[in-house]
Design a protein around this nucleic acid. Structure first.
Lengths: 342, 342
DNA sequence: GAAAGTGCCGAAAAGGTTTTCTTAACCTAC
DNA sequence: GTAGGTTAAGAAAACCTTTTCGGCACTTTC
């Protein structure tokens, strides 16, 4: 049995196109890729043959030859997808439709696993890597002996010569306080989350700076740290209003915490924002929109961060790497918890 | 300048391993792949050479040759990642570490985009496709003229000869009611979500069947449809307890709805589960655990669904396709909203 | 009319791996 | 000692595309 038996399940190759167009494989390739040395009429013939056969070039063969696969590896530690999915979406946008695909793997916070995944991805000849963390704290670098560029998103690399994209937590804290000041509040308290998270401290730091600039002090003297839960938000809010009834605004470390705070305030008979204004952090839609009143919060612009990460990666792949940490500023989303908008 | 100049950024190939081990490329390949015709001592030498050079086979070259790339395409419509991320995780588990990688693309609910993504994935020689929907309603089939098998997850294909994996919504409804009956409740009402979602109806259908079996009728005579929001849950719960004060249990269509229901009941001074027991649906952790009391709910076993989807896909790739719809049953997670567990 | 130049096209190599087929070496049995 | 058999290893083809380089045919220029 010879090889030219009809092989229906084999996909159409460039050779098929060339045969149909009556040219060589080389010419067909040049015609389809817009290379110069092809007569217009020939090119036309090839293109129409390709269309007729609905030819799709084999990305594997091309990748093997060029040493570029047109794929990037995405190593995520955030299985909830709260951070990595918007980042992936942004990356897809930045790469341009169909030009680049993302190989997504999940390392589940495990360094060994991460190393393993990176190797698997390198074996697939990815052109670059984006590492997405699950918190904004520094993480160890993957090192510089990798054959492809790496961009760290959300969690920056501890090595300042790596390229990292992070949220501007300090700026976010500042932004929250400035908004509250602009709403006429001056007795501001902070209820935030887990003190082992750098993000919690950074946001507080920014808030304190803004307060200091306005010549104000934090109600209670210090931020209240706990956990990133509604439960803690409720408990902390009760404690706060009992000890400092004069408080007129609460800046929260996350939307979950803010949600708990809002519930506790309502149960204490305090009106929001009448008596106390509340600002959250994350713009986690289901939380912020389900809250009563709907929650003013800071959106970290994760899609933008993702787009930027992808852009930086493409630049690096094209031979123009950057290094250092780049801050992505958030934006305030005003809703009813600071300024009723009926 | 010759080619053998140290080329540090070029990765180590099988030829390098073979040279170090003092064998031919063919032998090296056979040794590393566990083929038979290699002497044990030779194999040992090759393996240690490979380890020494930290050799990783080039997946592109292998894929090109075998016609299998070792990647599967994941087309998702659920950018929130609420469904697709657990499914991806399950798939990764099922494929086995590093054996298969998932090329994730997001079609954003757009059929044109989906078609485009599928073609891009096929160009990358994926071995199969998993299509993840964003709701449990039927979706159009991708057709049977694709060169690779397709498995539909969460949203089944409208073509019954496709292989689809779906949640057992009917069973979930039944499960919820049976749990409530077991807790001694008999005056059960249903507050669910958007009536344009088949899932809403199916869960109701299962619940009604279980009620009928117990010789009971639904309080209010019919399920209350609205939207998948807390707002609706609150409003519906108020309406319900005003009109039917005797109700002693509410089965909710989602955790978000349940959350609203719980809030409204608490504000009406009704105790949960003392006066009224509440069951949710989804086991969306932040919702269910943040609720007061914590929410008994039905987990749809999405990881399991994902694992199963991946398993079915691998089977199909290996030449053993299945067709038809396969139900994945959920499991009840009991928390304090039906049975206090202090 | 010959030499130089130009425009198009095709042959072939390269990229890294797997598999088939061939060869070489060694052993067993008569 | 030779024929036949068995085992281990290597040579080469195949997968599909891109690019370089060579060559052919035709045009221009003196």
């Amino acid at each position: 049995m010879t090889r030219q038996t009809a092989n229906s399940n084999r996909s159409v190759t460039l050779a098929d196109v060339a045969r149909l167009a009556g040219v060589s494989i080389a010419t067909a390739s040049k015609a389809l890729n817009g290379r110069a040395q092809v007569r217009a009429e020939t090119r036309e013939r090839v293109v129409s043959a390709a269309r007729q056969l609905s030819f799709t070039p084999n990305a594997l063969a091309r990748g093997l030859l060029l040493g570029r696969s047109g794929t990037v590896g995405l190593v995520t530690h955030d299985l909830e997808g709260r951070f990595s999915i918007p980042i992936l979406a942004g990356a897809e946008d930045a790469f341009g439709a169909g030009q680049m695909s993302g190989l997504l793997t999940d390392a589940r916070g495990d360094t060994i696993r991460e190393r393993y995944q990176v190797n698997a991805l390198l074996g697939r000849s990815v052109d670059g890597l984006i590492v997405v963390g699950d918190k904004t704290d520094e993480r160890p670098s993957l090192g510089h002996d990798l054959p492809v560029p790496v961009v760290y998103a959300y969690a920056p690399s501890s090595d300042p010569s790596d390229c990292s994209l992070v949220c501007d937590n300090v700026g976010a804290g500042r932004m929250g306080v400035e908004h509250l000041l602009g709403c006429g509040r001056s007795r501001i308290a902070i209820i935030t989350g887990d003190p082992t998270y750098g993000a919690a401290h950074e946001r507080v730091q920014g808030a304190l700076a803004a307060l200091a600039q306005a010549g104000l002090e934090l109600i209670g003297g210090r931020a209240m740290y706990g956990s990133w839960t509604e439960d803690w938000g409720r408990g902390a809010a009760r404690l706060l209003v009992d000890r400092f009834p004069a408080v007129d605004a609460i800046l929260c470390g996350s939307d979950q915490v803010a949600r708990g705070v809002l519930d506790a305030l309502r149960e204490r008979g305090l009106s929001v924002p009448g008596d106390i204004a509340v600002v959250g952090h994350d713009n986690w839609k289901v939380m912020a929109l389900g809250a009563r009143p709907t929650l003013t919060t800071i959106d970290m612009n994760l899609e933008e961060l993702g787009r930027l990460a992808a852009t930086r990666l493409v630049e690096a792949i094209d031979g123009h790497p950057r290094s250092g940490r780049e801050l992505v500023t958030g934006r305030l989303i005003t809703r009813n918890s600071t300024a009723p908008q009926d």
